[in-house]
Design a binder for these strands. Structure first.
Lengths: 207, 207
DNA sequence: GTCTATAAGCAGATAGAC
DNA sequence: GTCTATCTGCTTATAGAC
């Protein structure tokens, strides 16, 4: 008997990696099994051998995509550190995390919009609940007058907006600001350099 | 001879409205011609009679969706008013605009991500160029020390992030903050009330 | 302009040899 | 486990009567 997690064959991994790329770029309905097979350099029927159906393959990719980004929010924000340091650490780490998974936010939000039920339970348990201590911390600091005078939910929304949106809006930003890929990278580098201060500034009441 | 724009028959309008809803909710590949026909309460073959193909119908919806939201940014930001007032006006008006077209941002960004070329020229001319005076204004005010010490592009990105992202991230926010539809509306109401001040605060150097 | 019936093509899925 | 060949069903698109 093997361990809980079977060793995955090389073929299986190649398929999954190809599927991840294609689904994240084109979504469930836009993806083609043939394209995934081509990218994995294997025969199309292998997809069904390992994953039975497109839907099942998609589910695996979708779940992993969510797991990569979403629970990390709560996890990073539940460090036992003072609020200011926590915000700075979160900004740097989460920005790096998105940067290395930059297709995920738009992919997940598109699929979640089409089918809000699909991972609802997981989302509720893995973030909805786990983010509560941080929201509570924000509320307490607000009472002490240490933060801007806004509900915790609004502060969180503003922080996440500043971190995530530039990646989702990338195609628009690149066109209207006339940035090639390398310039867009610099654009993100710049954010990495000032956002820790900036997010502290827009969240906390600094003297 | 009729005017430049033909009067559209009632059927044609019903089709377009139905197509708008379905495409904006499910995207080009997720949409079904049958669903559009059902929603418009007409026969499926009417879709082809008026619009020839799914692709052509989609193009019309896509273009209108972009026109509704994107050129407005430059237009509202090119008012001939002092920066602070301009930011306040923009925040209120643009937030209201998105609120009444709340499916558009995610729809457009998803399609633009799949096919960045499709409306590139239009985007370039209708925003890329027209936003330049505003960026220039930001640069001048920055030189005078009136704004935060950031490149104009970063200030713009931050403003747009705060305005647009909560609508794109709605399904996630509703789950993790446990908001029903009515509570989400209140969440947006709250933003409408404080974001004008907030955006001024995060963009300008106020004494 | 609107309908019914049907064609045509494609994508997901399976059968079966090796 | 991997391949080729094939099936099935769905979706877009068209033909043609009214």
């Amino acid at each position: 008997m093997k361990g809980k997690r079977e060793e995955q064959s090389s073929t299986e991994l190649k398929i999954f990696e190809a599927a991840r790329e294609v689904f994240q770029a084109k979504g469930l309905e836009g993806a083609r099994m043939q394209e995934i097979a081509d990218k994995a350099k294997i025969n199309k029927s292998m997809l069904h051998y390992y994953y039975r159906s497109k839907e099942k393959l998609f589910e695996k990719v979708y779940q992993l995509s969510i797991i990569r980004l979403i629970p990390q929010i709560a996890s990073l924000l539940n460090e036992d550190t003072p609020l200011e340091m926590k915000l700075r650490n979160f900004t740097v780490k989460y920005l790096e995390l998105i940067r290395h998974n930059s297709d995920i936010p738009l992919f997940v939000l598109h699929e979640m919009n089409k089918n809000p039920g699909r991972m609802k339970n997981f989302m509720l348990n893995e973030i909805g609940k786990k983010i509560q201590p941080f929201l509570q911390q924000l509320r307490e600091e607000r009472k002490k007058g240490n933060t801007v005078d806004l509900p915790a939910e609004q502060m969180l929304a503003n922080i996440m907006s500043l971190l995530v949106f530039p990646f989702i809006g990338r195609p628009v930003f690149q066109v209207i600001l006339n940035l090639d890929d390398s310039e867009f990278e610099q654009f993100i580098d710049k954010r990495l350099s000032y956002l820790p201060d900036y997010i502290v500034r827009v969240t906390l009441n600094k003297t």
